[in-house]
Design a binder for these strands. Structure first.
Length: 251
DNA sequence: CACGGCGATTATAGGGGCCA
DNA sequence: TGGCCCCTATAATCGCCGTG
């Protein structure tokens, strides 16, 4: 007796305060008509294919319409989320949308567990860790770090301890550049932020690069630069930030 | 009646032409 | 020569409809 997707989702929402994080939501996918297609799309996303046509290419499903259709089901199930640059006026009309796995646990599962299931079932954990997980774990974690930095900045904004009260805070990109965090208000004050997850102090180069990217924005009355670092900051950058009020450092 | 196919519609990038 | 605008191709989304 197959339940419908809608029933499943409604039950999930109603049963609990929020979703069931401990219960693998992807088991629902097995109930759909084309589970293999859904899994190949999820795998493509887990490996960083974020734009629609990147997913189309990776999965080999030649029809973008088709992929879009499956993605809309996955979004309904809250497995996939769609993000647009924070400055977009009509987010649901934007063509700059990227698709991400909504839940960090799923990101890990589809990236590292599912593709290597046969090794893992053999008990070959060492091989999977050394060859498959360890080499890319830093960039994988870097993405999570961006999320955390974003939350941090939103919290500070809520507590009114930023240089101004921001109306919108989020990621931003166009076809050439990408800025981890952009925050702004109605008076055209901006904070541009970059998150660095590496075992090296962040220095002046990172600041200059961020300043260069910020030039993409017009009509900016006042701008601030925020740098988030895993491993602290260079002496030069610290000195400069003590002189300039528009540099915010988060260790 | 949910699912999936498919046509219609719309936003955007990139190229070419025109004008200062 | 550089900047701007229009046009076209295409990427992306919307939404209807047939089917099992």
């Amino acid at each position: 007796d197959h339940k419908t997707i809608e029933q499943n989702v409604k039950e999930e929402i109603l049963n609990k305060n929020g979703f069931l994080f401990s219960e693998p939501r992807f088991l629902l996918i097995e109930e759909l008509r084309e589970p293999a297609i859904y899994f190949s799309i999820l795998k493509a996303i887990a490996f960083g294919r974020a734009r629609l046509n990147e997913i189309v290419q990776e999965t080999g499903i030649s029809d973008p319409h088709k992929v879009n259709k499956y993605l809309s089901v996955l979004r309904e199930l809250r497995i996939v989320k769609r993000e647009v640059p924070i400055t977009e006026d009509k987010p649901h009309k934007s063509r700059k949308g990227i698709y991400l796995l909504a839940d960090p646990f799923f990101r890990f599962w589809f990236r590292y567990v599912l593709p290597h299931m046969s090794y893992l079932e053999e008990g070959d954990l060492n091989y999977v860790w050394k060859e498959k997980i360890k080499p890319s774990l830093n960039s994988f974690t870097g993405f999570i770090f961006e999320d955390i930095c974003l939350q941090r900045l939103k919290n500070l904004n809520r507590k009114n301890v930023l240089p101004f009260k921001a109306r919108s805070i989020g990621r931003w990109w166009n076809n050439k550049e990408e800025i981890d965090i952009v925050a702004y208000d109605n008076q055209q004050s901006f904070i541009f932020g970059e998150c660095k997850w590496k075992n090296k102090k962040v220095g002046l180069n990172e600041l200059y690069d961020l300043e260069r990217k910020a030039d993409t924005f017009f009509n900016v009355k006042q701008k601030y630069f925020a740098l988030f670092s895993k491993s602290g900051f260079s002496k030069e950058l610290k000195n400069l930030s003590s002189q300039r009020k528009d540099i915010l450092l988060f260790d």
